[in-house]
């Protein structure tokens, strides 16, 4: 096993997947010669050539639309959108076509497409480079949304996403790209989509989270452990369709639930989880459900970024409120 950062784990995984399956092509802005603006696709052009690693013109709708055609034809395209904020130039292709072609063709044409994009705040970037738009994709029937939280997770989940018969939006928390390294399994390694990860077991309160917020929750859990509160952390991994069984099982055990994500609160992933828990295990709850999230604002630029991005203090506050209810 090698110790890799998340971006290196993604790069290694792409190398291995492409070597194994010649239907895979990578397309996007600056993914070839430059190796991607975060270097996630470095070395792929040299190894696999310009037919399989394609520097496209600057056109996201072009990238995703053409990738859909390739996928229908029998290729396995991995489209890179340079930053999450530019996905919306391609949103019509995702909304109207990637998510629906299976249904529209009554099962004849699937769209085995992965759209990768760096995602989220925490790197003091420009506008459109710090957004968390996952809920917009979760809302589309036919789409899957995956967000890894560690380097090894990124490998397992990216492999499963590429092998999945349906379109997947794979969002990579850019703050984590180089934040830490961990042991990443060598060779084939897949984590089935739709299965959450138990990050830490606990009996008092459940924290459901994903992506860049997992480590924030770990810090908060450590903090409250000192006060005698035993928090359980569930990492969704597949944000939609998420692992409802893992959530209800945990909430039934602890009786308390906080959902933590950096995306805006209203109509977000937390709202869906809260609704489902209310529907399925309301009577297990000992306190109201809480959400610790980004505010319903345009993600602020560097100077004020930290005030919108949930940190462990905010999670600790929410744990205190919930425990003291």
């Amino acid at each position: 096993m090698a110790r890799l950062s998340m971006v290196d784990a993604i790069n290694t995984t792409l190398h291995e997947l492409m070597a194994k399956d010649d239907r895979i092509v990578i397309m996007g802005e600056d993914v070839g010669v430059d190796g991607g603006v975060f270097r996630a696709t470095v070395g792929l052009l040299d190894k696999f050539g310009p037919d399989r690693v394609i520097d496209t013109p600057l056109a996201e709708s072009g990238i995703v639309g053409a990738a859909i055609g390739m996928a229908v034809y029998g290729m396995r395209p991995i489209a890179e959108i340079q930053f999450e904020g530019f996905m919306f130039k391609a949103f019509d292709q995702v909304y109207s076509h990637a998510s629906r072609l299976r249904r529209r063709s009554q099962g004849l044409y699937g769209v085995p497409l992965v759209i990768r994009a760096p995602y989220g705040a925490g790197v003091r970037a420009l506008e459109h480079h710090s957004d968390a738009p996952e809920a917009l994709f979760c809302h589309l029937p036919g789409m899957k949304v995956v967000i890894p939280s560690t380097p090894a997770e990124a490998k397992g989940l990216l492999t499963a996403s590429v092998e999945d018969p349906d379109p997947v939006v794979f969002l990579e928390p850019k703050r984590l790209y180089r934040l830490f390294k961990e042991e990443v399994p060598e060779g084939e390694y897949r984590i089935p989509l739709g299965e959450a990860r138990m990050v830490k077991e606990g009996k008092d309160i459940t924290l459901v989270t994903y992506g860049g917020m997992v480590s924030v929750c770990e810090r908060a859990a450590q903090h409250v452990a000192g006060e005698g509160v035993d928090a359980e952390i569930v990492d969704l991994r597949t944000v939609w369709p998420f692992d409802i069984a893992a959530i209800t099982k945990s909430v039934t055990k602890t009786g308390r639930l906080i959902i933590v994500h950096e995306a805006p609160r209203s109509f977000g992933v937390g709202a869906e989880i809260a609704a489902l828990v209310a529907e399925r295990c309301l009577l297990s709850l000992l306190a109201p459900i809480k959400r610790v999230t980004g505010f319903d604002v345009v993600p602020p630029l560097a100077r004020l970024e930290e005030y919108n991005y949930p940190d462990s203090d905010r999670v600790v506050r929410a744990i205190h409120d919930t425990m003291q209810f």
Binding site: D30, V33, D34, V37, P57, L58
Partner: peptide
């Protein structure tokens, strides 16, 4: 240039 893409690959 558009980052690393030269104009002759753009159009």
């Amino acid at each position: 240039w558009a980052i690393s893409v030269p104009v002759e690959k753009q159009t």
